[in-house]
Every structure is written in structure tokens, then in C-alpha cells.
């Protein structure tokens, strides 16, 4: 069995967000990049499945759609334990474009299980997984919080309103995973970091196609107003402020 994990390259969650180019582009200057946390969980689960499979999972691959800047993050995924990597050499423009590129790059790869995180922490996109499945015409299951493998059978647990649902699926399939799917993400060890350099990272040219959307502009949320303290005896003042300033009563 071969597992593919889709890895998105996102700014560290503590990054200060700034925009340039007339608020049309994200300012990448000085940004530290990380593996999208949900994708990292997906990769962690893939590694857990491989370790528990007794050889049934032969290989874990990763794929990223992005420019060369994404490679350090991909190397980290290799250092954690993925065996090989594919980078589609183009900007990740929108979900449709990314999904199309992934589908084109992996359609002949013989992957049995394709994992993506439930969303990306940069643009909160959450469509790539399902779109990949559509492009490849294979089943997809979303909000998966558990993947179990026994023999050739795959069982997936997903969260639904008021409960959980357990599904079985044929191979190949796409699982869009969420929190709870794996234990903590792993820290790469020295051996892994050293090996990462030697593992294959194949760069492929993007397939023909256009993005369906483009960024018209970004706006930062307005700064939150400071908390106003009102003396506990001064209820009148509080009511007045709620009425005239906060306009909630």
C-alpha cells in the first residue's frame, strides 16, 4: 500500500501578517514557514499506520504545490519520515488550481490512500482534498478523526452533528483529516534530518490550467478597542456606554 500526504507550506501561526502591493499580496518577508498543522497530523497518522502495518504500507510520499521556497518545509516532512516528495513547481494560486495540479501529478502514481488536512492555516482553505478526489474520480471522506487499517480493510471515523459515523471505503480514496487523527506531531531526529537530504524530491512542471479565483485585496481586521473599566457603583454610566458607544442596548 502506498500513502500520499498533501503538504501545504504555511506561515508560522505566530507570524505578524502584513500585506504589500496595494494590499493585494501577502508580505512574505521574514516569514518562518511551517508544515500546515493539519497536514502534519495527517503525515503523523500515515507514519503511525506504516509502523503498525508490519510492512503492508510500503511507502509514504508527500506532495506540495509551490515554488522552491517550499522545499525546507518538504525536507522537514522527509526528515520526519516520508520516503519521497513531489513538488509541483508553481504558485499555489487557489484550491481548484492546487487540486488540479496534485491530481495531474499523482494520477499514475498508484497511491491507495491520499491524506489532506481539513484546512490550511493560512487562508483557511478546506477544499483541496475533495477536489483532488473529484479530479481522480475516487471516493473522499471528510472530517476524519480516526483511520484504522486491518488487513486490507480501511475503517474511517468521522465527526457528524451529534455523533460519529464509521465508514468503510474501497481503495484508492482521499481522507480529509482533522484533530484527533494522530498523537502529537513528531520532532525530526538527527538521523532523519541527515537522511532527508538524500531522499528524492522530484520537481515536476505544472500542468496546463488556470486558477478560477484571484485575490482582489486583503484587509486586516480593525484593532480591538481597549477594555473600558466602569466603577462597580456606577451602573448608570455602564448602561449609558452600552447604549451610546457599544450600541448593544
Amino acid at each position: 500500500m502506498k500513502i500520499l500526504t498533501c503538504i501545504s507550506n504555511v506561515p508560522d501561526t505566530t507570524t505578524k501578517i502584513r500585506f504589500v502591493d496595494d494590499n493585494k499580496a501577502f508580505d512574505k518577508n521574514g516569514v518562518q514557514w511551517i508544515i500546515n498543522p493539519w497536514d502534519e497530523l495527517a503525515l503523523t497518522r500515515a507514519l503511525e499506520l506504516k509502523e503498525a502495518s508490519g510492512g503492508a504500507v510500503e511507502k509514504i510520499s508527500i506532495i506540495t504545490v509551490g515554488t522552491k521556497d517550499a522545499e525546507p518545509v518538504m525536507r522537514k516532512a522527509l526528515a520526519i519520515g516520508a520516503e519521497d516528495a513531489i513538488r509541483v513547481d508553481t504558485e499555489a494560486k487557489d484550491a481548484y488550481y492546487v487540486a488540479m495540479q496534485i491530481a495531474e501529478a499523482v494520477k499514475d502514481g498508484g497511491y491507495d490512500m491520499i491524506l489532506t488536512g481539513i484546512e490550511s492555516s493560512d487562508y483557511n482553505g478546506s477544499s483541496v482534498g475533495r477536489m483532488v478526489a473529484e479530479f481522480l474520480e475516487i471516493p473522499s471522506v471528510s472530517s476524519v478523526s480516526k483511520i484504522e487499517m486491518e488487513g486490507g480493510n480501511i475503517s474511517l471515523k468521522r465527526e457528524i452533528d451529534g455523533g460519529t459515523e464509521v465508514l468503510e471505503t474501497q481503495l484508492p480514496f482521499v481522507a480529509i483529516v482533522q484533530k484527533g487523527i494522530a498523537l502529537e506531531p513528531r520532532i525530526p531526529n538527527m538521523r532523519g534530518i541527515m537522511m532527508a537530504r538524500k531522499k528524492p524530491l522530484t520537481v515536476v512542471a505544472p500542468a496546463e490550467g488556470e486558477a478560477l479565483t484571484e485575490f482582489a485585496g486583503f484587509e486586516l481586521p480593525e484593532a480591538k478597542a481597549a477594555c473600558k473599566m466602569v466603577d462597580e457603583d456606577n451602573v448608570k454610566e455602564l448602561v449609558n456606554l452600552l447604549h451610546t458607544e457599544a450600541k448593544v442596548i
Binding site: E71, P72, R75, K76, A79, E184, I187, M190, I193, A196
Partner: peptide, 17 residues
């Protein structure tokens, strides 16, 4: 280098976690 940064981050993650 990429490896040096990866080691720094690994040490940082370990210390925090």
C-alpha cells in the same frame, strides 16, 4: 543551512513541548 535550521527548530520544539 536547511539542516541547521531544522535542528534549531527541533530543539526549540522539544524544549517547548
Amino acid at each position: 543551512t536547511e539542516e541547521q535550521l531544522m535542528i534549531r527548530d527541533a530543539a526549540r520544539d522539544f524544549a517547548q513541548r
